[in-house]
């Protein structure tokens, strides 16, 4: 329960950064933090106490194993996050070249 709440607090820290910061770099970092907390939450609800990783070893299937399904899905999500970060960084670079600033309140003009 407290682990879930701490993960949720980490998500809210990221949400706070994404909503209140004016710097594009800080917004990208905040979005990354939100992604981390969601991944951690999915793995937390998959954990089973006293279980081992879901890989078959010599003692075939005797031990309990943790839930492998969220692990597979989070593996997908982590890779997609890398694509998101690269795309956001390239957009920020182009915005900086056009407007000479990372301040989102200065990015107002529609220049073609």
């Amino acid at each position: 329960m407290t682990l879930y709440l701490m993960t949720f607090f980490l998500f809210l820290v990221g949400l706070y950064g994404a909503t209140t910061k004016r710097d594009i770099i800080k917004i990208i970092l905040a979005i990354g933090i939100m992604g981390y907390s969601v991944n951690l939450f999915l793995i937390l609800i998959a954990y089973r106490s006293g279980a081992i990783y879901p890989i078959l070893t010599k003692s075939l299937g005797k031990e309990l194993m943790v839930d492998p399904l969220p692990q597979a899905l989070v593996l997908t999500a982590i890779v997609i996050e890398l694509g998101i970060t690269a795309l956001l960084a390239s957009l920020a670079i182009r915005i900086f070249e056009k407007y000479k600033t990372f301040d989102i309140t200065q990015v107002r003009r529609l220049k073609g």
Binding site: N39, I43, I55, Q71, V74, I78, E81
Partner: peptide, 18 residues
């Protein structure tokens, strides 16, 4: 610690690349 070694490796590589 949560018994997900594949994810730990992928997360490590992802973090360094990021």
């Amino acid at each position: 610690f949560l018994q997900a070694p594949d994810l730990a490796l992928v997360q490590f590589v992802f973090e360094i690349l990021c």
